[in-house]
Amino acid sequence: MCDSNITAFPLHRRRKLVQGIARVLESKNGEDANAFWRSTAKTILIQLSESGIAPGLAKQEVGALLHAVLGDIATRSAAKLAE
């Protein structure tokens, strides 16, 4: 199978997706948080692959999503501290 030229709307720009994952991760600790993220990332990678997104691009998208989720968590934590 060859790499595709299909480009998806960037995952890290999907605010509801980013915020939803961030909220779940905030409610978990340690291995539970790791397991949730691994499961979520695997599901998203499968969905992107089935949509025709090249594996390398799919991995980049999931990596950018993780950074956006962690940024959302950090922003929310900073806002709570500022209250």
Results as ranks from 00 to 15, higher is better:
M1K: 01
C2N: 12
C2K: 12
C2P: 15
D3N: 14
S4P: 09
N5D: 13
N5W: 02
I6T: 00
T7S: 12
T7I: 04
A8W: 01
A8M: 10
F9C: 01
F9T: 11
P10A: 09
L11R: 03
L11I: 05
L11Q: 03
H12V: 06
R13F: 13
R14S: 09
R14D: 12
R14E: 08
R15Y: 11
R15L: 14
R15H: 07
L17V: 13
V18R: 08
Q19S: 11
Q19I: 13
Q19F: 07
G20D: 13
G20W: 13
G20Y: 13
I21C: 14
A22L: 09
R23V: 04
V24Y: 05
L25Q: 03
L25E: 09
L25W: 05
E26F: 04
E26L: 14
E26Y: 10
S27H: 10
S27E: 13
S27P: 05
S27C: 03
S27D: 11
K28A: 08
K28H: 09
N29K: 15
N29G: 03
G30H: 10
E31T: 14
E31N: 11
D32H: 15
N34S: 13
A35P: 07
F36H: 14
F36M: 12
F36W: 07
F36I: 15
W37C: 07
R38Y: 10
R38H: 06
R38I: 02
S39K: 01
T40W: 01
T40A: 14
A41D: 04
A41W: 00
K42C: 07
T43S: 09
T43L: 07
I44Y: 00
I44N: 10
L45N: 15
I46D: 08
I46R: 05
I46Y: 04
L48H: 06
S49T: 05
S49L: 06
S49R: 06
S49V: 00
E50P: 00
E50I: 03
E50C: 03
E50A: 02
S51L: 08
S51R: 06
G52Y: 01
G52N: 03
G52H: 00
I53E: 01
I53L: 07
I53A: 01
I53R: 02
I53F: 00
A54C: 13
A54I: 03
P55T: 03
G56Q: 07
L57I: 01
A58Q: 03
K59S: 02
K59P: 00
K59W: 00
E61G: 01
V62L: 00
V62R: 07
V62M: 11
V62N: 06
G63P: 07
G63T: 12
G63K: 04
A64D: 12
A64H: 14
L65Y: 04
A68P: 08
A68W: 10
A68M: 06
V69F: 15
L70W: 08
G71R: 09
G71F: 04
D72V: 04
I73R: 15
A74W: 10
A74D: 01
A74I: 11
A74T: 10
A74Y: 09
T75N: 14
T75Y: 15
T75E: 15
R76T: 10
S77N: 15
S77D: 15
S77F: 04
A78K: 11
A78Q: 13
A78P: 06
A79S: 12
K80H: 10
K80E: 15
K80G: 11
L81H: 11
L81P: 00
L81T: 11
A82W: 02
